[in-house]
Each structure stands twice: as C-alpha cells, then as structure tokens.
C-alpha cells in the first residue's frame, strides 16, 4: 500500500515535474489531479470557445485573414502573441484581437474579463498547440517598449505590503515555500506559465487566462489590481511570455 502510494506520487511529480507539489496536496487531491490531467474540465469550455469563433469571428479562417496570414501559418503566428498589430497600432493580446475581430464581424465584443472571452481566447490560443512560443520582444520599437514596461511593472514594489512580482518570482526564491505553496519559476519547463494558460484552475473551478492569473497574484499580495487589456497588463504579459520562449504550447493547462 505504502509502496503504491509512493509510486503514484513520484509518477505524478514526473508528470507535473513540479517537485514540492506534495506540500500542497493531500492524497485525494493528488488522485483528482491525475484524473483531471487526463480529462481536463476546461476541454469543454475550449470547445465552446471554438463555437464562438465560428459564430462571431469567422472561425480560424476569419482570424487568419484578420491577422494577414495564411491558415497554415496561423499556429506559428499565434505562438508569437502578444504582438504589435499594425492595423490596431497597439501591442495587443490575443483576446484583444478577438474583440476587434468580433466588432469587424458586426458583433458586440465580449468583455475581456468575461467567461466567454476566456473560452474564446483559450480556443484561439489552442490553435497554436505544439508550437513553441516565439515571441520577439525586439521585433519593433513598440514591442521593445512593451517589454521594457513589463519589466518595470514586474519589478516595481507597491501595494499594502510593498511587494513586487519579483518578490516571489525571482531566481533566488523560486522553489521556496510560501505558506505551503512552492514558488513557481514562471519560465521553466515545469511551469512554462505562458505556454499553459489559459488553464483550468482547480482552486477556482474555472478556466482563466494568464493576465487573469496575474490579477490573482496582485490581489493576494495586496497590489492594486490593474485592469485586463491595459497597456501595463499587456506589457506584463509580454514580459512573462518571453520567459517561456521556446516552450511548447499546451492549452488548456491545468493548475492547482
């Protein structure tokens, strides 16, 4: 019995490549995690995202056309978001592109923080599954500026406790334990945050995006929460996405 438990735990750690997870999970949690890895509850939400794409945005074809790429090149192109999009004259996340695309198709865009947008952008990003993140933060002056802004937002101490993202995600504390939670390395193969969000968050029982996850950390650590879609938030996404450059995209992810 004990032997079996250990095998289960080590297989899981292998799968998760997330040593230290045992701090956070009970055996029954772990069993649930194993079950969910095979059958991600977010799959069905991603599927409804696909339906929204067809209904409001002309499907994959409409997205490719909007972005000015062929359908064959679409996956690799999506793997480079956030990007500077000339016709919008902004560095934008994929969710903002979908807003513009919905508007162009004569529909009222979903709010960035809506469940429907989370589902739709999860679908759109899943088009790039198995592609490697190829964001180019030096592609143009706009991307350079966004990266620099993201760096600043990530490193600025603020809020009620005077913390920055760096306080908990800098190389010297990664792997440390913050109230039973191992601090994740956002760029590592084990976590590769930008390649695995949108993800199903078990503790929230819902599908969430990367910027929404940032808001969770801001909220927990008492940093004023900045709105989705703000240049500062997109910049933070650029900065954190660059940490996972070269990692293979696998949407939807599954997180604690």
């Amino acid at each position: 019995m004990i032997g079996k438990k250990i095998i289960l735990a080590s297989t899981l750690i292998g799968v998760l490549a997330f040593g230290g997870e045992q701090f956070a999970m009970s055996d029954s949690d772990r069993a649930m995690y194993a079950e969910m890895l095979e059958n991600n509850p977010a799959d069905i939400m991603v599927e409804s995202g696909n339906e929204y794409m067809e209904e409001f945005a002309g499907g994959d074809e409409g997205l490719a056309k909007f972005l000015g790429v062929s359908e064959d090149d679409l996956p690799a192109y999506i793997a480079g978001f956030p990007r500077y999009i000339k016709k919008l004259d902004m560095v934008v996340g994929l969710d903002q592109v979908l807003q513009a695309l919905m508007a162009e198709n004569g529909h009222k865009p979903f709010k960035l923080k809506s469940k429907d947008m989370f589902a739709m952008s999860a679908y759109a990003k899943s088009i790039a599954n198995e592609e490697k993140i190829n964001i180019d933060v030096n592609a143009n002056p706009q991307m350079k500026a966004a990266y620099a802004m993201g760096d600043e937002v990530f490193n600025t101490k603020r809020g009620g406790r005077g913390l920055s993202c760096m306080s908990c995600h800098s190389p010297d504390v990664i792997g440390g334990i913050l109230r039973t939670q191992p601090l994740p390395d956002l760029g590592s193969e084990a976590n590769k945050a930008a390649a695995t969000w949108p993800a199903y968050r078990m503790t929230k029982s819902s599908l969430r995006t990367l910027p929404r996850r940032f808001q969770g950390c801001m909220n927990n650590a008492l940093l004023a929460v900045i709105p989705l879609g703000s240049p500062e938030m997109v910049a933070l996404e650029v900065y954190v996405t660059d940490k996972a450059k070269g990692r293979e995209i696998a949407i939807p992810g599954l997180k604690r």
Partner: peptide, 23 residues
C-alpha cells in the same frame, strides 16, 4: 474603420492605478 476597430478593444490606462500604489 481602423480607428473604430481599435476603439472596440478594451485598453484602459493603468498608469494612475500604479502611480497611486507606489511605495
């Protein structure tokens, strides 16, 4: 049309929120 498209995107400014929150 292009201007219209960008205006259909949510892009609120967060600089004030951050400035007020600085240490």
């Amino acid at each position: 049309f292009a201007a219209d498209l960008s205006s259909s995107i949510e892009s609120p400014n967060a600089s004030k929120i951050i400035a007020k929150d600085l240490l």
